[in-house]
Amino acid sequence: LVKNGVLTKSPIEIHPSFNPMIGPSPYVLINMGARYQPCMHNMPNVQNATGKISWPCPDATSTSGESVSCTLSELCGFSGVPDPHPGGTVHDQPAPNQWWRFIVPIFLHAGIIHIAFNLLLQLTLGRDIELLIGSVRFAIVYFAAGIFGFVLGGNFAANGIASCGCSGSLFGILAINLLDLLYTWKQRQGPIKDLMFILVDVIIAFVLGLIPGLDNFSHIGGFLMGLVLGLCILHSPSAFSARRPSVQNTVRYSGLSGIPNNNSTSPRSDEGLPAFLKHPLAFFQDRRGVWWAWWLVRAAALVGCLIGFILLLDNFYKQPMHGCRWCKYLSCLPVKVGNTNWCDVGNLDFTPNNGTSGKRELFEAVAGQAMDRLW
């Protein structure tokens, strides 16, 4: 808000359009580190454009004149990026490489309403999950889910849309909550009600993510990462971790909820990293086959997560050779309003065969309109 006030003389965006989230313009957010693909890697239809591209300025208050006369380097800010030049190719070097835009956007929000909703969820659901798994593991899930969400969106979301917020991180926490519910289902007083509450949250967020300009992939990526990390960091379900009857114990705790399970035969003190470090051999004694199988599943999930993350990063920097034509429908509805297809909103194209009369007009029609509708 402060930077928007300095650049545009208003703390919130009111020109060229009003930001319904009551916050800065998308151009200011891009300049402050929102995920914006042209600042991060070479892009088709940008690096190989046949003419000079005029980008919106961070202090833009209109869609014409000096407000759209900046270079890409000026829009991206920080130390700048190499500007596209007429006759270039997607293989030009050095390429834009502001990789930190996968991390910084977690701390940026589109406005007061945006951050208020996220804070409400974080101070309620996030607080409970942090008490269950501890601050260190909470931080790991929070940042891993947020970063993975932005990486997934960078691969499949519209390439002209700026994205920011901690929604991906919160979806990772929501996934942890879902796993803990499933792990402690029999010990809950109203598990169906809890499950319906989680499902309603997920469905509403995913449906809203189908609106043009919103990045549903951040939600999907954060949720998937939360599920995978949840399998790895949560204690095994009591049905899997119960030892053979030869171990004489009295009370067993399931998941991370601290709910006792009197039908089991081993205490919580014999589980987890502290128990392993204290008695490494005893940790593995009298384990059932299902426990070993579950650990293989957890290990495979962690390895698969790392491989998927590496492949997505590799694909991001190799675009457009490795794309997915149908993936966009996870973040949009194939609805046509007037001459605009919702699934085409936000894609940049500065090549002469795109049917527009000029590059500035194209940017106004796609980038300006789409980013202004982002929030």
Rank of each mutant, 00 (worst) to 15 (best):
N159R: 05
G190P: 02
P191A: 01
Y183T: 13
L178E: 01
K186C: 15
G190N: 14
A158F: 02
R188I: 02
L182E: 06
F171A: 02
A157R: 05
D180G: 10
N159G: 06
D180T: 04
S169F: 00
K186V: 13
G165Y: 01
A158H: 11
L174M: 14
A157E: 14
Q189P: 09
P191C: 05
L182C: 11
N177A: 10
F156W: 15
S169D: 11
F171Q: 13
G190V: 00
G168C: 03
A162R: 12
G165T: 04
A175E: 00
G168Q: 02
F171P: 01
D180R: 15
R188M: 05
G172P: 03
G168E: 02
A175L: 08
L181E: 01
I161L: 15
T184N: 15
G160M: 01
S169N: 12
N177H: 12
L170F: 05
G165V: 07
Q187D: 11
R188L: 06
Q187V: 12
G154T: 07
L179T: 01
G168M: 06
A158E: 09
Y183Q: 11
C166S: 15
S167L: 09
F156S: 03
G153C: 09
L174D: 00
C164L: 10
T184W: 04
N159Q: 07
L174T: 14
L178K: 03
G168P: 04
L174K: 00
T184F: 04
L181M: 08
D180K: 11
I173S: 06
I192H: 02
G154A: 09
I161H: 02
I161V: 14
F156Q: 12
L182I: 10
S169Q: 08
D180P: 00
A157H: 13
L182F: 13
F171T: 02
Y183F: 14
P191F: 04
L182G: 00
N155A: 10
F156G: 05
G190L: 10
C166D: 13
G153P: 06
S163Q: 09
L178F: 12
A158P: 07
I161W: 08
F156H: 13
S167N: 12
A162G: 11
S163G: 13
L174S: 04
I176Q: 07
A157M: 04
C164R: 06
G190E: 09
C166T: 08
Q187R: 11
A162C: 12
G153M: 09
Q189S: 14
F156N: 01
L182R: 04
R188G: 01
L179W: 13
N159A: 10
I192E: 06
L179P: 05
L170C: 04
G160F: 01
N177E: 12
L179V: 09
I173R: 06
N159K: 06
G168F: 02
T184V: 13
N177G: 10
Y183S: 10
S167V: 15
L179Y: 00
W185H: 05
L178Y: 07
G165K: 07
N159P: 05
G160P: 07
I173C: 08
S169H: 04
Y183L: 13
A162K: 05
C166L: 10
G168R: 03
G165Q: 03
S169L: 02
